[in-house]
Simulated assay, not measured.
Amino acid sequence: MKNLRIAWVTVIVLFFLGLSPVSANDTKNIPVESTMTPAEMQVLIDRLEEIKKIDKSTLTKAERKDLRNELKETKKEITRNSGGVYLSIGAIILVILLLILLL
């Protein structure tokens, strides 16, 4: 009976590992150390607040597009330098299943 349980756990783990896309050349998920100081981060956050306060109805279409692109780039920069741990849905499900089966 215990061998059957171990076999099922192995099958489930292999199934979920097969579902997760893994690429050896994927450089997006490599954690990068934050090179920004807190003062630089505050400058970016202040700029985001300024963009939110701008009256966009007075801007031309090109100015709105430039502002939108600046907003996207600023948010990406903040996200890139804020750090944190990211888990995929497959990894979360796998951890939950292992906890249920082992406890």
Rank of each mutant, 00 (worst) to 15 (best):
I45L: 15
V95H: 12
S82K: 14
V22N: 12
V43D: 06
K75L: 14
L99G: 15
S57H: 03
T35M: 06
D55I: 07
T27R: 14
I54M: 13
G84F: 13
T37A: 11
N25E: 04
S88Q: 00
L94A: 01
R47C: 06
L19W: 09
L87N: 08
V22M: 11
K72R: 14
L97M: 07
S57Q: 00
D46K: 10
K76N: 11
A62K: 01
T35C: 08
K53E: 15
K52T: 09
K2L: 05
E50N: 05
V22H: 09
L87K: 04
S57V: 08
K61G: 00
V13E: 06
K56R: 06
V13W: 06
G84P: 11
T60I: 01
S23C: 01
K65V: 02
S34E: 12
E63Y: 07
T27N: 08
L59V: 03
P31E: 14
K65W: 15
D46S: 09
L67P: 02
L14C: 14
E40T: 09
K28S: 15
L101S: 04
M1A: 07
D46F: 06
V9S: 09
I93R: 08
L67N: 09
L99E: 12
G18L: 09
T27E: 07
L103E: 02
I96T: 09
E40P: 02
E70H: 08
L71T: 01
A39M: 00
I30R: 09
R64E: 03
E73I: 00
R68Q: 10
E50D: 12
M41I: 15
K72C: 01
E33M: 11
T58H: 06
I30Y: 05
R80A: 05
K75I: 15
V11W: 12
L17V: 01
E33Y: 11
K53L: 14
N29D: 13
V85G: 08
V85R: 10
S34L: 13
T37Q: 10
A39H: 06
V9G: 03
F15R: 03
L102N: 05
L19G: 10
V95W: 07
G18H: 07
D46H: 05
Q42A: 12
I100A: 12
D55N: 13
I93M: 03
L17I: 04
S34Y: 11
I100V: 15
T60K: 05
E63G: 04
N69R: 12
L48W: 02
I78A: 00
A24T: 04
P38E: 13
D26A: 04
L103T: 09
I45Y: 15
F16M: 00
K61N: 13
A91P: 03
G84S: 14
L44W: 10
K28L: 14
V43Q: 09
